[in-house]
Design a protein around this nucleic acid. Structure first.
Lengths: 340, 340
DNA sequence: ACGCATCGTCGATACGCATCGATGAATCGA
DNA sequence: TCGATTCATCGATGCGTATCGACGATGCGT
């Protein structure tokens, strides 16, 4: 492996000059720059990351703390991971994986050993045990998710309140006056991620201001539970029932339960779920969705932490960014009555 | 951040002694060791990774090249990623993500900059453009998947041939003499990962040796295609049809298609799919599965590359490890006739 | 023509650790 | 009791880069 000294020698300059050509932190004449760049190319020189980190006190690596994975959500987590990794590259950074099973100690380790310049925490819970550590670490930390007490922390998340609001408004506009929301699966709810409450809060507020009623039902992987909700929803309304099911697994079950009752989404009943456009279109009946925009959340997360890294000024930052959600009509919801 | 020099001072020894206590590469008296360890604890000293990499020529980081993600397979990829990351920790290594969108250059970068000691490539294709680079890099590379020409490479994968064999034998034993295999989705097949062929090869060979016949049908996300296959399978056999559908998405479609024809898995028809035990049990009718054991493949992958890292002897290694698959009976397959 | 600022480059040093050779202390045999 | 070993530790050096101060060369104004 060639070093910057080799490059310097080949170009007939000092090693420090090579360094300045690369960093641009001091003016270099066009002629010298050319010589150095040629030498770099010919030797296929690449700066040694360890030495760079040691001398420059910056590793250009961001630690990504991935959650322990309830099997059913692995797909959505992977989308975050993937987008975060490629976005990080655009900011000239790499992503190091920190698994949840290392627990809070993992955070201390990667920061203490200075493997990372900063951290991104996924799936932040309401009262997350990692928060005190996050606050005490001397590096920027970005949370995806919003804890109960976000003071002194930098957070980003989808705007679940907006999502709940959008869903209810949409169904109300389609003529539904009783709307049933089926909760996330117990496995998710029990994790105390508060986006569940935020979503419900947004939905309830919208319902109140519009004068429609919202019913809440437990989620679950069991068809009978969902079928029950369907029956209750049917009994509670004169018109056609409407369902909101933000959890992907619950969506699948709901679809099955509706079929079992002979109900067709878009004709006898409205259903709004949460899925990427691609997945939504693949359904037998294309699903109207509330898009929580994981890719956009990921991109912004990386952007925010990279800004913090450049800012470099100490002192705990604090901010909260909510990414607007997008509702999309497809075949699974009734169309609004004409003229209204 | 305290350094090993600080520790040395606190313990009243030389810095090199601290280093030897940590690495164990020279004998240290019990008394000195104790002093040093106490100092480490009190200062909460953690060795600087950059300096360690620079001096020790070993980063303790493994690059994991994750594939570009057809949305539908994200879940399974995440399982690999997650298990690889936590297994790596057991071998005292960390995982750095390298995204496919950086292409082959990404491999050269992380190795050239010496960010990584070795690489794991996922989803290796038949004629993978990364192979020449993998061979030319001066670090251990472990492939998950088997290219057409694995010479000079170290590979691991599930034993898809065994999987195909097991499925066919199992269905034959249950009394089926015509077995229909539905291919992976076109998106997967077109990627030229050859596990598809290996699976089919194993199935065909088993069929031949058992005197049953195997029909192949194209996979797809379209219900009508699958329904077609169901009809053809029904026409081609006196008894009850049998299906093998290793692709998860295809499985879902198949289930729907069977329902549409009024067929019940386990009663009128046998179905073997591929899913983790958890997911299989969650189905309305628990699915008999061929388990491709992604977690085991991941664990062994990490183990192999860590061994290579320790071996350190140059010269291209070459090996091929196949992880046995496991077939599990659940409710979706017919039971073998008594006494046979 | 001369002092002065500016520009471009060099040399030296620090970053924190691993490792090698050397040194002093302790142990052993005869 | 003395030299030969072995054991435990120290000091010095190198890993490859970033950065700071210094220095010669150039251009400016007067």
């Amino acid at each position: 492996m060639p070093t910057s000294k080799d490059v310097a020698q080949a170009a007939g300059v000092a090693q420090s000059t090579v360094s300045y050509v690369l960093s641009g932190k001091r003016p270099i004449s066009e002629k010298t720059r050319k010589k150095v760049e040629d030498a770099i190319e010919q030797l296929t020189y690449q700066p040694n990351a360890g030495a760079r980190a040691l001398a420059g006190r910056r590793t250009h690596v961001i630690g990504l703390v991935i959650p322990f994975i309830p099997e059913l959500e692995m797909g959505s987590i992977m989308e975050f991971v993937s987008v975060i990794a490629s976005t990080a590259r655009q900011y000239d950074h790499d992503i190091l994986l920190v698994t949840e099973d290392e627990g809070a100690a993992g955070l201390r380790r990667v920061v203490g050993q200075q493997i990372c310049d900063g951290l991104i925490l996924m799936q932040v819970e309401d009262e997350d045990e990692r928060l005190p550590i996050a606050r005490s670490l001397n590096v920027p930390v970005l949370l995806i998710g919003i804890p109960r007490d976000p003071s002194g922390l930098v957070c980003i998340d989808a705007d679940f309140e907006m999502a709940g609001d959008q869903c209810v408004r949409d169904l109300a506009a389609a003529g539904h006056d009783v709307i049933s929301i089926i909760d996330w699966q117990p496995a998710v709810v029990n994790r105390h991620v508060n986006y569940v409450e935020r979503f419900m809060g947004g939905a309830d507020a919208a319902a109140q201001s519009l004068g429609v009623s919202v019913q809440h039902f437990p989620g679950g992987a069991d068809v009978s539970i969902i079928t029950d909700s369907v029956d209750k929803a049917l009994a509670a309304t004169h018109g056609k029932p409407a369902f909101i099911a933000p959890d992907r697994t619950v969506q699948d079950i709901l679809r099955r339960a509706l079929t079992a009752r002979g109900l067709t989404p878009g004709a006898d009943v409205s259903v709004i779920g949460s899925a990427s456009p691609t997945l939504a279109e693949l359904q037998p009946i294309p699903l109207s969705t509330i898009d929580l925009r994981p890719a956009e959340v990921s991109r912004r997360a990386v952007k925010i932490i990279c800004n913090l890294l450049e800012a470099e000024n100490q002192g705990p930052h604090e901010s909260l960014e909510l990414v607007p959600t997008v509702i999309t009509h497809r075949a699974s919801t009734l169309r609004p009555p004409h003229g209204s």
